[in-house]
């Protein structure tokens, strides 16, 4: 059916991203194809865990095994939107959530009045008018965490030394999308970092990996000084634009803070295994 209808159809899981966008005419399609038939189980193995794409964010965030071994992932799922939206919204839908921009997440009439932009119906970017590309923001909470955990096909794998943390910044404590976020997964030998991934949300049009900070931390003791320097390095490549909530200057400053908080959580946390 999807092949036959092509771009006239879209898949829908929880509908919590797609339906508001259809109402705002951001997608104009004839058919939605429900994904209710997809499996929605969490398969817990001894040191890995597979989350089916149809699992709701609420179930992923409450699962005891995911919480014990992949704390950052459970927290990221539990920080998406609000409780009723997490009861419907899925892990698969969260990975595929559309990029966001204040000039795009508006009604058809508003966008028409402002002048359509290149994300849909127009040919310029209203945030960066001379830019040849769209800078709408990647705002998924779980995608950066999945990348930090090096997830393949939603299979989370833990080693005894692995820890993870996710810190999200938004105007209110619920409902709002992230305006900056840090997903960190690290392996520690005692308090020495043996490997580390830091991925930022909502500061680029894709989850942004802070590779310089990762390289800096490798082999270092995870103390206050190392955390400060790593956070500074991680914030450098983040270039938020004026197309999300609050000012982009402040959001840029806060990237350092969310990374610092996530690294402190890693340093305070026990290892990912509870036994």
């Amino acid at each position: 059916m999807a092949a036959e209808l092509g771009s006239r159809a879209m898949f829908v899981a929880g509908g919590t991203d797609l339906f508001p966008k259809l109402k705002r005419r951001q997608f104009e399609i004839d058919t939605v194809i429900g994904l209710d038939f997809l499996p929605r189980e969490i398969h817990n193995g001894s040191n890995e865990c597979t989350v089916d794409a149809g699992v709701t964010l609420a179930d992923a965030s409450r699962d005891a095994h995911v919480n014990a071994r992949f704390k950052g992932y459970a927290d990221a799922a539990g920080l998406v939107s609000s409780p009723p939206l997490r009861n419907a919204g899925t892990i698969g839908g969260n990975l595929c959530v559309d990029t966001r921009c204040n000039y795009y997440d508006m009604t058809y009439e508003w966008r028409k009045a402002a002048g359509f932009c290149m994300k849909k119906d127009g040919d310029i970017c209203l945030v960066a008018p001379s830019s040849p590309r769209c800078w709408a923001v990647s705002s998924s909470d779980t995608a950066p965490m999945a990348i930090a955990l090096d997830v393949m096909s939603l299979r989370l794998r833990a080693t005894p030394e692995m820890r993870s943390a996710y810190v999200k910044l938004r105007r209110r404590g619920s409902i709002d999308f992230p305006i900056a976020g840090a997903a960190v997964a690290a392996q520690l030998d005692g308090d020495i970092v043996t490997s580390c991934r830091i991925v930022l949300s909502a500061v680029a049009s894709y989850p942004l990996q802070a590779t310089a900070a990762e390289a800096f931390l490798k082999g270092k003791r995870l103390d206050g000084e190392a955390i400060d320097q790593a956070a500074e390095l991680a914030a450098r490549p983040a270039k938020p634009l004026d197309n999300a909530d609050l000012t982009h200057f402040w959001r840029k400053r806060m990237v350092r803070v969310v990374v610092e908080q996530a690294l402190h959580r890693i340093s305070d946390q026990g290892a990912g295994f509870d036994g």
Binding site: G15, F19, V32, D36, N87, A88
Partner: peptide, 16 residues
């Protein structure tokens, strides 16, 4: 409530 859990009726289709 859908099966006892809160969900938002403005974003649900009855066919589901």
């Amino acid at each position: 409530l859908i099966d006892g859990r809160p969900e938002l009726s403005c974003l649900l289709l009855p066919v589901q």
